[in-house]
């Protein structure tokens, strides 16, 4: 049970949150080609190292936020995107 630092609630057990995965940017749906769209849907960098990801503070503040987590060590640091 790792601790996720919610920017609103402070540190919380990960069971209180939901991991929404690697941060991906959404192409303009009106103009994106299917290839671009499906890259957004399916392809992930999936690194063994630092990844910027989104969490949802489900039992706490109910806010989405991003942090950086090292997927090889589970270390967590603040995200520049947050």
């Amino acid at each position: 049970m790792i601790v996720v630092p919610c920017p609103n609630c402070g540190p919380r057990n990960s069971s209180d949150l939901r991991n929404a995965g690697e941060l991906v940017s959404r192409p303009d749906p009106d103009t994106a080609s299917l290839t671009e769209w499906r890259s957004y849907l399916y392809l992930r960098e999936n690194p063994a190292g630092w990844v910027t990801e989104t969490w949802y503070c489900r039992t706490g503040c109910r806010r989405y936020f991003t942090i950086e987590r090292n997927t090889a060590t589970n270390e967590i640091r603040d995200s520049e995107n947050s």
């Binding site: 303009d28 749906p29 009106d30 994106a32 769209w37």
Partner: peptide, 12 residues
């Protein structure tokens, strides 16, 4: 519509 969830896949 200019934007809706899944729009490109809906069109496809």
């Amino acid at each position: 519509k200019a934007d809706t969830i899944g729009l490109p896949e809906l069109r496809a």
